[in-house]
């Protein structure tokens, strides 16, 4: 490591280089988002298909979201020990909580006429889902993915509190233990940069996937703003907008 400035020569108890920590950090934060996405697609589809299921799902997700990450971690220690899994399970749940309402709102916002037209053209239910609903819900799904990814990258650091399971967050513990305050700066700046980079990557990917949307359009910004808040608030906003349009 580039020694001397004290930002990158890491204490040996971390057992990793700076680059190694970044790798662990990304692993711990992105696997939960991916898992959350895989789980949330069918759950969201169920909520769209069976409208009555959505309100209770919203309630459960709101309550789960209210559980502090540190509390969630310590609850799990007894079952999964002090391990990456202990950090990844709560982050998966949080991703799920953000993604399910985003996807439900996205799919619900597909105009009824579009659905009727595709039905009239003879699309099967499966074809409609993959060729009409899912593509049109991409902006909303990505708005959710961005929130889930950024908060996941930020939250991993709390894992340091249960014993060096926080990726780059582990630098914070050492910063206090060894009075190596530069390490805290390294930790915060790197985590923030990672979050911003992945946010940007997701924006780029979304633009690639939705060439029919005007760049920097109001719709994209609105989706970003809606998702910037919290799953349930986004859902309420959608409901409010629906009301205003009526």
């Amino acid at each position: 490591m580039s020694g001397g400035n004290g930002y990158f020569d890491l204490p040996s108890d971390l057992q990793h280089s700076y680059a190694g920590l970044i790798g662990i950090h990304l692993e711990e934060s992105l696997i939960p988002v991916a898992a959350g996405l895989v789980l949330s697609l069918p759950i969201a589809q169920l909520c769209v298909r069976y409208r009555w299921a959505y309100p209770p799902v919203l309630w459960i997700t709101t309550v789960l979201y209210a559980i502090p990450s540190i509390a969630f971690f310590v609850f799990l220690i007894d079952y999964t020990g002090v391990s990456q899994t202990t950090v990844e399970i709560p982050l998966t749940v949080y991703s799920l909580v953000v993604l399910v309402p985003a996807i439900v709102d996205g799919i619900r916002s597909v105009p009824a006429e579009t659905m009727a037209a595709s039905e009239a053209m003879g699309f099967t239910a499966v074809q409609r889902y993959f060729q009409v609903q899912l593509p049109l819900a991409v902006p909303a799904i990505f708005a959710g993915l961005r929130v889930a990814t950024v908060s996941s990258i930020s939250l991993v650091s709390v894992g340091t509190a249960i014993g060096n399971q926080g990726g780059l967050g582990n630098l914070l513990g050492d910063a206090l233990t060894y009075h190596r305050y530069n390490l805290a700066v390294t930790s915060v700046v790197t985590i923030a940069l990672l979050a911003i980079v992945f946010d940007g990557l997701l924006i780029g990917l979304r633009m690639l996937l939705t060439p029919w949307l005007p760049r920097g359009s109001g719709a994209a910004r609105k989706a970003a703003l809606a998702a910037a808040v919290e799953p349930e608030a986004g859902a309420e906003k959608a409901a409010a907008l629906e009301g205003a349009a009526r």
Partner: peptide, 26 residues
């Protein structure tokens, strides 16, 4: 200022709360 707000919101979420706390404490 909608774009500016979206930017601020993203930036604020990117900051790890625990990290910020440690920095401020230091």
């Amino acid at each position: 200022g909608g774009n500016a707000l979206a930017l601020i919101a993203t930036a604020a979420r990117a900051l790890p709360t625990l990290g910020l706390l440690v920095l401020m404490f230091i």
